[in-house]
């Protein structure tokens, strides 16, 4: 039988899925064990049991001075920035994408401009953002918006342009105005695409969030990681990295579930 036709059964598929996770964990445990047996003070690869203890301590014990559990405060602060940034990007991207995609006048006016804007590396703008918006929340949110918006606009306007001409003509023969075509024909059809583009933007959004927090902040997941780096607190860093990964995965998963639930007609493998 050809290799391309060989498909795993259900239990074997689950086993294969879990295998890489187990292998990475195993490799880490062995590496950590080797290093710790050579030097019990080694900080680079703390034992899995130690990482676990740190995790439990971080999520349950308050700060000695204030009694706040910093872990949750960091999480909340970061999620707020991320959510706000992505929400602004998505709404502006949606409106701009519809305008550029549907109206040739706006397309001539803005499409090339956005294409050029999207070439600016957002991180290079970070100093400007700090200067203009200060070191507070605003500059971090703006960085996420600046970093994800051009892609969203380009992607969504492209999707609108790709809507079959037949559908737009059809709507016109049913008497639809430009406004009605926008809200009743184009908008619902690119909503699943918006969700998909947002999912793709989440990676860069996290990148910009952590970068901004690392440079100027006093709370947030990225801030904490870069803070404890000074003490080589690998167990804390690992905890935060794993937590960020879980958060990113959960957000991605719920967006996908939302897309499936609300837009069942768009069944292409979302």
């Amino acid at each position: 039988m050809r290799l391309i036709n060989l498909k795993p059964g259900r239990p074997f598929a689950v086993f294969l899925m879990l295998l890489p996770f187990a292998l990475v964990f195993l490799a880490y445990a062995i590496g950590s064990d080797i290093r710790l047996s050579a030097n019990p003070q080694d900080k680079l690869l703390p034992a899995p049991s130690k990482v676990w203890e740190t995790m439990v301590r971080l999520v349950s014990e308050g700060d000695r001075r204030t009694g706040r559990i910093l872990f949750w405060h960091d999480t909340w602060a970061s999620l707020k920035r991320l959510g706000l940034g992505i929400a602004i990007s998505a709404s502006v991207g949606l409106v701009a994408g519809l305008l550029i995609g549907l109206l040739p006048l706006v397309r001539s006016f803005l499409a090339q401009f956005v294409a050029v804007l999207s070439m600016i590396p957002p991180l290079a703008l970070l100093p400007i953002l700090f200067i203009v918006f200060g070191l507070g929340e605003l500059s971090k949110v703006v960085l996420i918006v600046v970093g994800t918006l051009p892609f969203l606009i380009r992607d969504l306007s492209q999707r609108v342009i790709e809507l079959p001409d037949e559908l737009l003509v059809k709507a016109q023969t049913l008497g639809a105005s430009s406004w009605v075509i926008a809200i009743r024909v184009a908008l619902p059809q690119i909503m699943p695409r918006l969700i998909q583009s947002v999912r793709l933007s989440l990676g860069p959004a996290w990148l910009f969030l952590i970068a901004a927090e690392a440079i100027a902040s006093d709370l947030g997941l990225g801030y904490r990681i870069f803070l404890v780096r000074r003490y080589l607190a690998m167990d804390v860093i690992f905890t935060y990295v794993i937590w960020i990964t879980i958060l990113a995965f959960l957000i991605d998963w719920s967006l996908r579930a939302a897309s499936r639930k609300f837009y069942p007609w768009a069944q292409e493998g979302l």
Partner: peptide, 24 residues
């Protein structure tokens, strides 16, 4: 591509009368 993929069959027929209205 003659019908709207995001509307149910019934809504597609309703659209024949409703798209000409202000909010579609």
């Amino acid at each position: 591509y003659s019908v709207f993929p995001h509307m149910t069959v019934r809504d597609n027929i309703v659209a024949g009368e409703s798209l000409r209205r202000g909010w579609g």
